[in-house]
Design a protein around this nucleic acid. Sequence first.
DNA 1: GTTATTGCAAACCTTTTGCATTGGC
DNA 2: GCCAATGCAAAAGGTTTGCAATAAC
Lengths: 163, 163
Amino acid sequence: MTSVTNDFLNCFLQFMNRKGLNTTSQRCAIAAAFFDLPGHHSLEEFYQHIVRQDPGIGQTTVYRTLKLLCEAGFASEIHFSDGIARYEVAKPNSHHDHIVCLSCGKILEICNQRIEALQRELAASRDFTLSGHVHNLYGCCADCRNGVGNDKGRAAEPEDLRK
Amino acid sequence: MTSVTNDFLNCFLQFMNRKGLNTTSQRCAIAAAFFDLPGHHSLEEFYQHIVRQDPGIGQTTVYRTLKLLCEAGFASEIHFSDGIARYEVAKPNSHHDHIVCLSCGKILEICNQRIEALQRELAASRDFTLSGHVHNLYGCCADCRNGVGNDKGRAAEPEDLRK
DNA sequence: GTTATTGCAAACCTTTTGCATTGGC
DNA sequence: GCCAATGCAAAAGGTTTGCAATAAC
């Protein structure tokens, strides 16, 4: 476990204390795996990963703990175009923008201050108070375009977890 | 039916002819309703709207015709944060960007050439061939902020969209 | 001991498909 | 008449919930 994971985990423990929630071994294992696993994964993917090192755990608990992590502000639920919810670590200054390769499922993070500024402008011009945004670009990465891609078909299988 | 609807409908009839598909009364009724109904609606919403004026129609046919309209390039499937697919008329120069009010569900279209340009730049810098994008801003409209809103309670809970 | 949590199983909801019937051509 | 299209019903697949057993405190 990295020290960053450990820091996040401590914050989550504090959150549970503040809320009067029990700190169970399952919640700790799930949160640790969540913080330790980079990328954007579905409930099923997290469950498959966690159950490998902790076979007694239930999918429902993973589901509920991910929701809890969202509620605590440590996780964000994101939706790409396939309708499956994915979860990622909500870094304080992250902008949750992505480029998704529709051929191999690769997901890259993008961040552009000028776009952020234009978003704020647009929201202001419509008199909206902005609370969030989703910004995903879809296309084909260089590897897939050149036939180097691993044509797995989108939506990662369990093996993809460490991409 | 507006003349624009009629134009779209004719194009769709041509598409069906080209593809050798039968032009059935159901397909025409569904396509007409689709072109005539402004906004972004789910399968269920279209079905409810269409079945009102044509009670014999089946949800499956609405589903399949919407897919057909997508295939023909007349419709686009869009995903907001609640995981339900919505369909909208794919106008040739539309950019499919939206501002969504999380309180009343109001959806406004937005379009910004500078953001489009920045998207192309970003994709190029990652060596991606861009085929599409999703860009939605979430927040609270002026009406809802001032308590005038009609609190329909559409879509996502706050934690879905945390930024 | 009391109350929260777990995890199985089942419900739920949207999307998709199988198949016998209907209808366009 | 032939084959595509329809629509019922049910499957599929992800998400959510009820509840008895279990574990935290």
